[in-house]
Every structure is written in structure tokens, then in C-alpha cells.
Amino acid sequence: MIINKILNVDDYYYDVFMAISESLTGFSVNELQSTGLAETYYQHILNQIEMATFIDFLNVSKNVLDNAENKDQLKNAISSQIMDNPATQQIAQSVITLWYLGTWEGAYVNDRSYKEGLVWNVMHAHPPGAKQPGFKSWETKPVNSNS
């Protein structure tokens, strides 16, 4: 897979982080960028774990992304080389949690991370107390409504 240059962040590893985040979360890089938290999350991780550990994770991720020729190979490689690897498993799980819930080791990264968690998109909901669904939204049936 090709890792494209994303935005104007000059850090090579940022592009790898975004590409592996796309594969781990199932959301496109554009969707992840639309949270407005991509650079914040990247910097947060850099401040939370040893840089060498994070770079090792990103190097493994880059190899997985570069060597996969199709989505099935990518899925299998992520499973075997990242999720089943004790050296990368915890970071991968933390990255997934970060994007979906906005938390790192149980704490919210910032005020926006709760509001922009991917979990709300998956649930077709809004974060209670943070983003309201909009005027007269109660008139629209939920997406998966059987009634």
C-alpha cells in the first residue's frame, strides 16, 4: 500500500501513523482528519511512551502496509504481525481506543477527544452533553430503526 503525504506535517512517521490508524479503525484518513485531532493524538502518543517504542511500532506498521497487496493480506498481516505481537499489541490497542473513545490509558486527551470519538459515528449517535443532534432531530427515525 502507498503511504501518501498527509497535510503539511513534515514528520515522516506521522504519515505512517495515519495510514495504520486507518487500517486499525476502519475509518479513512480523511474521516480521521475530520476529527481535528490527528496531530494532537500523534503528539500525545509521542509524549506518553518512549519514542523508540513508538518508532518500532510505526516501522512494523510501515512494513505491514508496504507489503500488503490487497485488503485480505493487510488484515492478516495486521492480525499476525501487530495484534498478535507482544511488542506492538498494546500500542495498537491503545491507538484504536484513542480514536474510538478519545482516551489514552483511561484519561481523555483533551476536551474535544470525548466529542470527536469515533464511537459516536459507529452508534449513529452524539456524545451526550457535548454535541446535540440538532433542532427537530427527534422527528427523524434512527438509522437502524425497525419501527
Rank of each mutant, 00 (worst) to 15 (best):
M1W: 02
M1L: 06
M1F: 06
M1G: 09
I2H: 06
I2Y: 07
I3L: 03
N4V: 12
N4A: 12
K5G: 02
K5Y: 09
I6L: 09
I6S: 02
I6R: 03
L7F: 05
L7K: 09
L7A: 13
V9A: 07
D10F: 00
Y12R: 09
Y13R: 10
Y13Q: 08
Y13C: 04
Y13F: 15
Y14C: 08
D15W: 10
V16P: 00
V16L: 03
V16T: 13
F17H: 06
F17R: 03
M18S: 05
M18P: 02
I20E: 00
L24H: 11
T25N: 06
T25I: 09
F27W: 11
S28Q: 03
E31Q: 13
T35K: 09
G36H: 05
L37T: 03
L37V: 05
A38V: 02
Y41Q: 02
H44S: 13
N47V: 06
I49H: 02
I49G: 00
A52I: 10
A52G: 01
T53R: 14
I55H: 14
L58V: 10
N59W: 04
N59P: 00
S61G: 05
N63Q: 12
L65K: 01
A68R: 06
N70W: 04
K71V: 09
K71E: 13
D72P: 00
Q73R: 08
K75C: 07
A77T: 05
A77K: 08
I82R: 01
M83V: 00
P86R: 05
I91F: 08
I91R: 02
I96S: 01
I96M: 07
T97F: 01
L98T: 12
L98F: 07
Y100H: 15
G102V: 13
W104S: 10
G106A: 10
G106W: 10
G106I: 10
A107V: 11
A107T: 14
A107W: 06
V109K: 01
D111K: 05
D111W: 00
R112D: 14
Y114R: 13
E116D: 06
W120E: 03
N121V: 06
N121Q: 12
V122N: 00
V122H: 04
M123W: 11
A125N: 10
A125G: 01
H126N: 13
P127I: 07
G129C: 05
G129K: 02
A130I: 08
K131D: 15
K131E: 15
P133L: 10
G134Y: 02
K136D: 15
E139H: 12
E139R: 15
K141T: 13
K141S: 14
P142R: 06
P142T: 11
N144A: 12
